[in-house]
């Protein structure tokens, strides 16, 4: 169980305050226990626990988009490797893109999920400074996407379903990344994933940063954990373009409609996977348990469909996306005014 006090989000201050009070009360109760039971204090503790749960519920039910971004980036939030440990058995990591190297920003490997076998691909950000540096903060280079594609092709060859965990601020914007064809490799990945003849489930587990997220994000099911975002541009990047200052990121996060609820409303994702009370960073085990049951259910649903329709359905899924007006009639998605 992570210690949530290590990293404190500003809007969680009332939660931490109440938790401190509760800890003090519990300590005092334990200390004075030798001198006989204190029914008054025990009742106070029970009441405060209920209040704390209620407080978390209220705060997390009303997160502003920017607060959601902060939760999605929480350093104690479970990452791909945490979910691999908690959800799957016998994980067998596979490395390298057979051209440039082994990009640690994307983890790939085989594993057992319940009664079945799958290929896992997922961004990894790292937990401490050394890991984060090695993982390049979850920002993959072209070799990361090539590695993912290579393993996914192999999975399709042997009929293994693919589970993709998305958690990246974006594909890395660097000199080497451009020299090695970042745009080209992401394009290639989109095109190839649309044709991989095996079930693919994509879940945003943290940050869904633009093309870097989409690069492993084409599948038969798209889902988002409750407190994550998925966006065409980072709120900071958008704020810099629109208002010339990244301090306006909260306003940009609001404008971009990037939360799980927004994406469900736009028909982009199929489902929101609920997080434990107060966010996934408060309880890795529970977050993993809910995610696991989602994965098993979704794979079961896809398996129940006629096999030959898989690629046609995947094509139609993305084919429908978009909001525009034709001949005065709004098509696809919610009605939109004629621009």
């Amino acid at each position: 169980m992570p210690n949530p006090s290590e990293h404190r989000l500003p809007f969680e201050a009332p939660i931490y305050e109440m938790e401190t009070r509760l800890t003090e009360m519990e300590a005092s109760y334990a200390k004075n226990r030798a001198g006989g039971e204190n029914p008054g204090l025990a009742e106070q503790i029970r009441r405060l626990r209920r209040e704390l749960a209620g407080l978390k519920r209220v705060i997390y039910a009303n997160l502003e988009p920017w607060q959601t971004v902060q939760v999605s980036r929480h350093p104690q939030r479970p990452q791909t490797r945490n979910y691999i440990d908690l959800i799957f058995d016998q994980f067998l990591e596979l490395h390298g893109d057979r051209a440039i190297g082994d990009d640690k920003a994307i983890v790939t490997g085989l594993a057992h999920l319940g009664d079945g076998k799958v290929m896992i691909v997922g961004h990894q950000k790292g937990k401490n400074l050394a890991e984060r540096t090695a993982c390049n903060f979850g920002c993959a280079h072209p070799e990361g996407y090539r590695k993912a594609l290579l393993k996914m092709r192999m999975a399709a060859k042997f009929g293994l379903p693919i589970v993709s965990f998305i958690d990246t601020p974006g594909a890395y914007p660097g000199i080497a990344a451009e020299e090695r064809g970042q745009a080209s490799v992401i394009a290639e990945s989109l095109m190839a994933m649309s044709q991989l003849d095996t079930p693919i489930i994509c879940v945003i587990i943290g940050e869904g940063g633009s093309g870097g997220a989409l690069g492993i994000g084409i599948g038969d099911r798209l889902a988002m954990l409750e407190h994550t975002y998925y966006s065409v541009i980072s709120p900071e990047g958008c704020a810099t373009i629109l208002w010339k200052a990244s301090e306006h990121a909260p306003k940009a996060a609001e404008s971009l409609k990037m939360t799980s609820r927004d994406l469900l409303r736009f028909g982009i994702i199929d489902e929101i996977i609920p997080e434990p009370l107060g966010g996934a960073h408060r309880d890795h085990r529970e977050a993993a348990a809910v995610l696991k049951s989602y994965l098993i259910r979704a794979l079961g649903e896809i398996a129940a469909q006629p096999r030959g329709e898989l690629l046609q359905r995947r094509y139609e899924k993305f084919r429908r996306m978009g909001v525009f007006v034709e001949g005065g009639h709004a098509l696809n998605g919610p009605p939109a005014p004629v621009a």
Partner: peptide, 26 residues
């Protein structure tokens, strides 16, 4: 690139167009 003003719907156009090209090539 992808048009910021239409948010995630713009990002998904990359997927849509690339899927159509996959079929064209196939």
């Amino acid at each position: 690139g992808a048009r910021m003003h239409e948010g995630i719907l713009s990002l998904m156009q990359m997927a849509k167009v690339s899927s159509a090209l996959a079929r064209h090539h196939a």
